[in-house]
């Protein structure tokens, strides 16, 4: 059978049962299997150990395994829920689930908060926000004076820090993000809605439908 060879790919120790992952997420079993196709590709791009290392994540995002990027680093660290320096398949699927178009907005808001809470203090502090703006400027070759950066940070805090204590707490963030839905645009990946179309090789391999599973 022509499609049998793809099945010979050894599933690594990080592989988790698609039935369980589908139950825990918005994805169907077929979609979890299709995500495995993507996962295999990324996790074998450099180290070939079936786990996604930061360099492989960067390579997939930027076509460059050495590109330093604060925000890609943050996303990698949040995907790496076990904090062991790599992303396994279960972590990959559960984390991507946040970015699914059908995932409730509250989950996206909570994930974005953790992304911005650089030091994990439970609040987004002024210094953290300034650090992120400076990282963005550095990344984009935009030139802004320190005064202009201060102004942007002050303005943002004026809007978001409702009790004026100099930090944005999760409740303030929830209100602020709900009022500014454009902030969460990157928290939804339309690709995830049609993941089996993006990786049609899976459909040939499995031959199974979600009705059957």
């Amino acid at each position: 059978m022509g499609c049998a060879s793809s099945k010979q790919f050894k599933r690594t120790s990080g592989y988790e049962d698609p039935d369980i992952l589908a139950k825990e997420t918005t994805f169907t079993v077929n979609e979890v299997e299709a995500l495995y196709e993507l996962y295999k590709k990324i996790s074998h791009s450099i180290f070939k150990d079936g786990l996604i290392h930061k360099e492989e994540f960067q390579l997939a995002l930027f076509r460059n395994s050495h590109k330093k990027n604060l925000f890609a680093d943050r996303i990698f660290d949040l995907f790496d829920q076990k904090r062991n320096g790599v992303i396994d398949f279960g972590e990959f699927v559960r984390s991507l689930n946040i970015f699914h178009p059908d995932t409730p907005m509250e989950e996206k808001i909570a994930f974005a908060f953790r992304l911005y809470d650089l030091r994990g203090t439970g609040c987004i502090e002024r210094e953290e926000l300034k650090e992120m703006v400076l990282a963005l400027l550095n990344e984009s070759d935009l030139l802004l004076s320190d005064d202009a950066v201060e102004q942007i940070v002050n303005q943002t805090f004026k809007q978001a820090d409702m009790n004026g204590d100099g930090k944005i707490d999760p409740d303030e963030w929830k209100i602020f993000a709900s009022k500014n839905p454009a902030l969460l645009k990157n928290m939804t990946l339309p690709y995830l809605k049609d993941i089996t179309m993006a990786f049609p090789s899976f459909v040939l391999i499995s031959g199974a439908s979600d009705d059957e599973l």
Binding site: I42, I75, M132, V133, L136, S140, I152, A160, F176, L183
Partner: peptide, 25 residues
């Protein structure tokens, strides 16, 4: 004109855009 740092970051940072993961085909 209001300027929102989070808006700036989320709309401009390439590291915040995961669509690259799906475009490596």
């Amino acid at each position: 004109r209001t300027c929102n740092a989070f808006q700036l970051i989320s709309s401009m940072s390439s590291g915040f855009d995961l669509s690259g993961l799906f475009e490596s085909e």
